[in-house]
Design a protein around this nucleic acid. Structure first.
Length: 893
RNA sequence: GGGUGAGUAGCUCAGUUGGUUAGAGCGCGCGGUUCACAUCCGCGAGGUCAGGGGUUCAAGUCCCUUCUCACCCACCA
């Protein structure tokens, strides 16, 4: 498909629908998303955080797509072989959960189906949604390499998971043990610490009285969970607590269970809290578990996996925790063991996925030994091998890593990577393997081997993602070339769950961190600052917004609405404003196309619009100078990950400088009879627009491509056009200054016209004493007249010494004076008052500047250029005030 | 209990390394059918940068402190 300059008129306004899908399909078909391996050039690599295959894309996805796509497109234009690797995640518990809900609606449970049938259901669900994720990423414009799309449950990443497990197991870094873990009674699985959310709840604290077994008296203990007393195996006090020294070593009698339990001493008890004595339930409290270990206490598990009480709970067996709590309290009260109940606020853990209250309990699970894995992962953050953006997240990461606990890896689920551990029932050998199945025991050869029924935490495979997607454990070309990656871009909410795991897994298996920079984006919230959630019903669907306003407008909004690492509130009025910006660029292009229609536009050897070489007027030179500054700024901002600032800078340039001033100014040159000026204006219009579109392309891929195709250009697509380099020769401070003078003059006259109530359409006269701006005013007289609406032959440039006319408004711009003879509209008193107001303002400025300059310290210590700037400012202000005052004098003020 | 972020115009937010007179969008007021754009154009009003103290020639920006809000971490019986 050849794409030379597109012909035909552009519509009067931008319609994203007509443009977006066309270009995306074409880019994809052209193969632009797939990088070419070039051993002479280091690649730029981003591995996409794989969206969960559990539902629709939300705004968080739209945000990460925007940021990563900006980086990918920018680097591609820089000429870096750019790989942005997409994927999808099977999402462990969340994945199983959605399918369980689906079959529950049909009246089944997963157990009714059995493991194999259930997994078939999950797979068909996944296949259905996988395509949807792809579709939505495409709508957002994601320029990722679909040929490398990977799903975490695909055979290759699955083999990587088994391999990683086996290697860690063989190194002794994975072990199985009975430990206190978090148990979700609804999901019926163990959870890692990170999958538990603690929420403050208003509950109660019960003060109980346990009688001493060997004599009179009681010991009082406080608890927020009275039902756990059924599993108590001791009472603990602080060894230094004088109130209890006599009790240590004696026995208490556990109420309701009628069980003797020892009173032990342990440092972990806070004598200040409650009664200073603690009931010890080793099986259901992490603290108590440790106390029990130190004191050799037994532990009694009173819970079934579904959260009901088991036979160890005696009469309460079979009851739910809530029922048991009521009944236990009732019984305790009836028998006089309840001292009192107080209101109490404490935090309770809930399952991250289903919200059920999590039960701490002892269970046989697989764990990763974190200490050896964490040490080098701490080092790469400390020594800067991995950079954090914004940097404050480094501290958060380090704090977690330095205090990390062993990681509970096993989940009692069916959906996920099955733990590759097999047990021989003949000889009892336990073996890990990287193979999918194990036929016979490695020790005795028996075929009586069975695989562990559990699956791995979904984040285990996520930790391997930066290299499992590139072919690891095989030594592939992709792995050699694209690893380690460049930037990891993700949300700060998964810094521990994911980022930390990728870092230590990368170091463990690849010998180095899997990326050199990790950039965090914030959470997208609704207009009220609330987290978006389905239950709140405040979710803004990115595809809806895209359909209504276009992907470009949404993308631009997402990056300019916030700052790196900061949450952002998404308001529709902002999206609309940015849709208007897209439309503005669209119409600017319409103007340019009309201007160059039928005329020659010079191109470089490669076919792209050439910079103008002759005949430039002041506005031409000014916009070229501004473009050069823009180019340098945008490049620097992207390098610093300041995407929002880059976007705002482009907005400001295109709308306020290019459209509001430059395009308006070209209307004068284009309507003049000066062929050279016309040619320069056309050339400059096209050149600046074409370069700006390239600078804008990473942020707004669609509209920039569409418009670029209408302009003379080199190459097939803007997405593979080179990133422009700033033409430093075009920078001209004198030109900038003179054009600013021109703008100030226009603004000042417009302001005076508006204040005096001059009809906008009316052409007026002006007399100008040019001060030092004679050349500028001579050259740009036409521009000044056009923009300030001064009639032909009604602008008079006069020598500075001429006396002021009567019945005029006097304006001072820099060292120039403008008289507007507005017969009938000028009131002498009003004019005097206006001049006095001006003088007051300028005098304030003089006071500030001269104050600064009178300060010896300032003059001595501030940089010379700052001092110089203030000197100039003072001089200019003094001139202004002199001019204003003399005029006021003439008016008898 | 520790930690982080935020507090800037009526609203929503920018302001990366301290450097002229603090910006934008929306909203508001006044005025506009000029042949790119009413999804627009022109002009304007509006801020003690949460409070207090400090460092500095210079502070929205750095330090200390207080208040308010949000979030994170922690084995708060």
């Amino acid at each position: 498909m050849a794409h030379s300059t597109r012909r035909g008129e552009l519509a009067r306004s931008y319609n994203p629908d007509a443009v977006e899908s066309h270009w995306y399909d074409w880019w994809d078909a052209q193969g632009y998303f797939t990088p070419r391996v070039d051993s002479d050039r280091p690649p730029f690599v981003i591995v996409m955080p794989p969206p969960n295959v559990t539902g629709e894309l939300h705004m968080g996805h739209a945000l990460f797509v925007t940021v990563e796509d900006i980086l990918a497109r920018w680097h591609r234009m820089l000429g870096d072989p750019t790989l942005w690797l997409p994927g999808a995640d099977h999402a462990g518990i969340a994945g199983q959960w959605v399918v369980e809900k689906e079959i529950a609606a049909e009246g089944f449970s997963r157990h009714d189906l059995g493991r194999d049938l259930f997994l078939e259901r999950v797979w068909s669900w996944m296949d259905r949604y996988r395509g949807r994720i792809r579709e939505q990423l495409r709508i957002l414009g994601a320029s990722c390499d679909w040929s490398r799309f990977t799903f975490t449950m695909d055979p290759e990443p699955s083999r990587a998971v088994r391999t990683a497990f086996k290697r860690l197991y063989d190194r002794g870094l994975i072990y199985r043990g009975e430990r206190m873990i978090n148990w979700c009674p609804r999901c019926m699985t163990a959870l890692s610490d990170l999958e538990v959310n603690y929420d403050e709840v208003h509950g109660h604290i019960w003060l109980l009285r346990y009688p001493l077994a060997d004599g009179d008296g009681f010991v009082e203990v406080a608890t927020t969970r009275p039902e756990t007393m059924l599993g108590d195996t001791a009472v603990a006090v602080h060894p230094g607590d004088e109130r209890y020294t006599g009790l240590i070593g004696r026995m208490a009698r556990l109420p309701l269970m009628d069980r003797p339990i020892p009173i032990v001493a342990d440092e972990a008890v806070d004598p200040e809290f409650g009664s200073g004595a603690v009931k010890v339930t080793p099986a259901h409290d992490p603290n108590d578990f440790e106390i029990a270990q130190r004191n050799g206490l037994p532990s009694i598990n009173i819970l079934n996996n579904d959260g009901t009480l088991n036979e160890n709970a005696g009469a309460f067996a079979g009851q739910s925790i809530q029922e048991a709590r009521r009944n236990v309290v009732m019984q305790l009260e009836r028998h006089g063991f309840l001292v009192r109940v107080d209101e109490h606020v404490h935090s309770v853990g809930h399952c991250d996925r289903c919200g059920t209250v999590v039960e701490p309990l002892i269970s046989l699970q697989w764990f990763a030994d974190m200490a050896p894995l964490a040490a080098p992962a701490i080092e790469v953050a400390r020594n800067g091998t991995v950079q954090f953006m914004p940097e404050r997240f480094k501290g958060i990461y380090l704090h977690w890593m330095e205090n990390v606990h062993d990681w509970c890896l096993s989940r009692q689920l069916w959906w996920g990577h099955r733990i590759p551990v097999w047990t021989c029932s003949a000889c009892g050998e336990v073996m890990a393997t990287a193979e999918e199945t194990l036929e016979r025991c490695e020790r005795c050869g028996s075929t009586e081997v069975t695989q562990d029924p559990d699956v791995l935490d979904t984040w285990f495979s996520s930790g391997l993602w930066p290299f499992s997607t590139l072919g690891w454990p095989d030594d592939t070309e992709d792995l050699r070339y694209f690893f380690p990656g460049s930037v990891m871009e993700t949300g700060y909410d998964i810094i521990f769950l994911w980022v930390a795991r990728m870092i230590f897994m990368g170091i463990e298996f690849m010998g180095e961190a899997p990326f050199s920079t990790v950039y965090f984006h914030g959470t997208v919230r609704d207009e009220a600052g609330q987290r978006m959630s389905k239950t709140k019903g405040n979710v803004l669907d990115p595809t809806r917004i895209t359909a209504d306003y276009g992907s470009d407008a949404l993308r631009f909004t997402l990056i300019t609405a916030g700052a790196p690492g900061a949450d952002l509130k998404l308001g529709m009025q902002r999206v609309e404003a940015n849709r208007n910006f897209v439309n503005k660029i669209w119409n600017a292009t319409r103007y340019v196309l009309r201007a160059i229609e039928g005329a020659e536009v010079a191109t470089d050897g490669d076919g792209s619009v050439a910079a103008p070489s002759a005949g430039q007027t002041l506005p031409d030179r000014w916009i070229l100078s501004r473009l050069s500054a823009l180019n340098a700024d945008v490049t620097q901002l992207l390098e610093a990950f300041q995407f929002g600032e880059a976007g705002r800078r482009l907005y400001e340039f295109l709308w306020s400088e290019y459209c509001d001033w430059y395009i308006e100014a070209t209307k004068v040159a284009l309507n003049s009879g000066d062929a050279a000026a016309q040619a320069a204006a056309r050339q400059t219009l096209a050149y600046v627009l074409e370069r700006s579109l390239r600078l804008l392309h990473p942020v707004m891929p669609y509209v920039t491509e569409e418009l670029w195709q209408h302009l003379p250009h080199a190459g097939d697509s803007i997405m593979v056009a080179p990133w422009p380099t700033a033409d430093s020769a075009a920078r001209d401070e004198r030109v900038d200054r003179e054009f600013v003078f021109l703008m100030d003059t226009v603004r000042t006259i417009r302001n005076a016209r508006a204040e005096a109530g001059v009809e906008p359409a009316r052409w007026i006269s002006a007399v100008v004493l040019p001060g030092t701006h004679l050349d500028t005013l001579r050259e740009s007289e036409g521009v000044l007249r056009f923009l300030a609406r001064i009639g032909a032959d009604r602008l008079e440039l006069r020598a500075n010494d001429s006396s002021a006319p009567q019945q005029v408004i006097t304006l001072v711009v820099d060292d120039a004076v403008v008289y507007l003879p507005l017969a009938g509209l000028v009131d002498l008193d009003t004019e005097r008052a206006r001049l006095r107001g001006e003088i007051d303002q300028v005098e304030e400025e003089i006071a500030r500047a001269s104050g600064l300059l009178a300060n010896e310290n300032f003059v001595a210590r501030a940089p010379a250029e700052v001092v110089e700037r203030h000197r100039e400012r003072l001089t200019a202000a003094q001139e202004r005030v002199a001019l204003l005052q003399s005029r006021l004098g003439e008016l008898g003020g």
